[in-house]
Amino acid sequence: MRVFAVAEIRMNELDPVSVELLNLANEIKADGSAEAIVLGKDVSEFANELSKYSDKVWKIENDSLENYNPEIYADVLIQLFQKEKPDVILFPNSSRGAELAPLISTRLDAPIVTDIVGLDFSNGVKAKRYIFQGKLMVDILVKDADTYVFTVRQGVFKEGKEIGGEIVDVKIEPTVSPARQFISIIEPEVGEVDIAQADIIVSVGRGIEDESNIELAEELAKALGGVVAGSRPVIDSGWLPKDRQVGISGKTVKPKLYLALGISGAFQHIMGMKDSELIIAVNKDPEAPIFGVAQYGIVGDIFEIVPALIEKLNQIKS
């Protein structure tokens, strides 16, 4: 099979997920090829890096590819795909992949499965993914087609080897005048506390239930000498400022202690805290996925555990 992987350039850097896509491509290609595609204004450096892991790199350079635009990117990719006829096309499950993959799937009339963590071609086409934000897993049988499109979860296909391939320079001009226009990139807001620098983080999720309960987390953080952070719903509700959000659309943290209170452990959250030195989770649901990354777990009510812990810590201090 010819497996194409669309590399991700983010903030002018090659995102490591690009190599993970190629690891997967090499795993499933059988006697076919793993081929990377890299698009942008000036991407030679990235093409060189990608060639280590692919049989072939398609390098498409063009001034109009400087800023990401889904209509232009899709148009250029389709021109390449119509000529090269890939069997499988892989995108990262990123903010870009989430737009490009469905566009390509529709244009090529190719079945699509998103956010996959496993792929098997041995007996029909089977993709593995999570549903219910990590609580269940499904095997999906994909109907027979000429081309398949998948978006791949980051951090899954980390194992691979270098093979060393060639770089092909292709000239493709976009043929569309897009109805979407790129204006600018907006930097993250900076607040007074940088949770990424903290040694101890008390992190609260939807289980904290109400804004008035944030105080409880503040008290615990104070007793531990740490800071309070939160999962996305807590920030969405305006209970904590945006710069306190842990996860893929917030900050990545690696504290000495990450105390997760009432956080279920969705993938988008876990990606921001899984490398913490010590993770302890309190959750009333024994099946919560957060217990899969925590070293220690407490199945219980945060409103019972946290006050008891604050009291004991304050006793030690005085």
Binding site: P111, I112, V113, K126, Y130, I131, G134, K135, L136, M137, V138, D139, I140, L141, V142, K143, I279, A281, E287, P289, F291, G292, V293, A294, Q295, Y296, G297, I298, V299, G300, E304, I305, P307, A308, L309, E311, K312
Partner: peptide
């Protein structure tokens, strides 16, 4: 149709070591 559900199952996870007892004991 593009896809078909083959099966659903609980994801295999390594589990945290559980701390049990009363709230005070846990603390």
């Amino acid at each position: 149709e593009m896809i078909e559900l083959e099966r659903m199952y609980l994801p295999p996870v390594k589990k945290a070591e559980l701390i049990t007892g009363s709230a005070d004991e846990i603390a």
